[in-house]
Design a protein around this nucleic acid. Structure first.
Length: 289
DNA sequence: CACTTGACCTGTCCGC
DNA sequence: TGCGGACAGGTCAAGT
């Protein structure tokens, strides 16, 4: 799923809903979704209150009063949906939702708070995970050690972005920006959208993209990520925010899932192809190899 | 080291 | 209607 804008939307939602709530119980039905030792869960989660909800790259962090943190990766189909007591098994969710009554068959973990509210970790494909770690250890997990800079942080300069891309100079520009160790948070949707914005064919080797275009690419990455955050993210199949609602970015997408339609800039027909092992959408007239 | 491919899973869609 | 295969928003480990 979830790329940076979707994870950020979930983070913002949870930040408004969770702080102060106290964990009362946890249930899970798929070991790999929450592989923590039961003794750790009992000692450091049950009875702890939420202090803050953070994000780094596509990873969410729910900080606890015990100086432990729930670290969560939604991968392709993960959802984190908060419901008050009445909504559990209850009236379901509004029409702008992909979630019905919870728990459902995609529910992997159910967190219950002492005030009767619940947080559901749903994950149809079971790729996602939740881990409970001491807060100071979170930056030391492999992913955090290797992940690249946040694209929306102003301390990432054009020069830094270009220099990091050069590490992957013999691969396609699309593979390079999807590489989380080069830059954080970009996935298939925003890769296609930003490459269209910068008029770069996704299969172009990094070394063959002029520096001026790489600079433009960073501008376009920031544009699409910010626009998507504003629209609440992209809901293609599974993604919903912390309240179970869909995001609307795909209504504004220029190429993603728009094969067969006219390019909004030049009118040529958008095509779908395959680059870096991923479905790839582009304008064949403006994005040439 | 850089790069590509398959694996991890379930569900849906498309062609026969 | 059933069945096989491809594909789906993301990482990882293993291969070359």
């Amino acid at each position: 799923m979830p790329e940076l804008p979707e994870v950020e939307t979930v983070r913002a939602g949870l930040q408004g809903l969770l702080p102060g709530r106290v964990f009362g119980a946890v249930e899970h039905n798929w070991e790999r979704s929450f592989p923590n030792a039961p003794s750790d869960v009992k000692q450091f989660l049950i009875g702890a209150s939420v202090t803050a909800v953070r994000r780094r790259a596509k990873v969410l962090m729910i900080d606890l009063s015990t100086d432990y943190t729930l670290v969560i990766h939604l991968k392709m189909t993960g959802q984190l949906v908060f419901v008050t007591e009445g909504a559990r098994f209850g009236a379901g969710h509004p029409s702008d939702s992909l979630v019905g009554n919870l728990p459902d068959r995609s529910t992997r973990v159910e967190f219950s708070f002492t005030d009767g509210s619940h947080l559901f970790f749903n994950d149809q494909r079971k790729f996602g995970w939740v881990r409970l770690l001491p807060t100071p250890e979170v930056p030391n997990i492999d992913f955090m050690k290797k992940v690249g800079p946040e694209p929306l942080e102003s301390d990432l300069t054009d020069e830094m972005f270009i220099a990091r891309l050069q590490r992957r100079k013999n691969t396609s520009i699309k593979a390079a920006i999807l590489d989380q160790t080069v830059i954080a948070g970009i996935g298939n949707i925003y890769a296609d959208e930003s490459l269209w914005g910068a008029k770069i064919h996704p299969a172009t080797l990094v070394k063959d993209v002029p520096k001026a275009k790489l600079k433009t690419l960073l501008t376009e990455i920031r544009y699409v990520l910010n626009l998507s955050i504003e629209k609440g993210g992209s809901s293609d199949r599974n993604y919903v925010n912390a309240e179970g609602k869909k995001g609307s970015y795909l209504q504004f997408a220029r190429v993603f899932r728009r094969e067969g339609q006219a390019c909004p800039r030049c009118g040529a027909i958008i095509i779908k192809t395959r680059v870096a092992g991923r479905g790839t959408h582009l304008c064949p007239k403006e994005q040439k190899l």
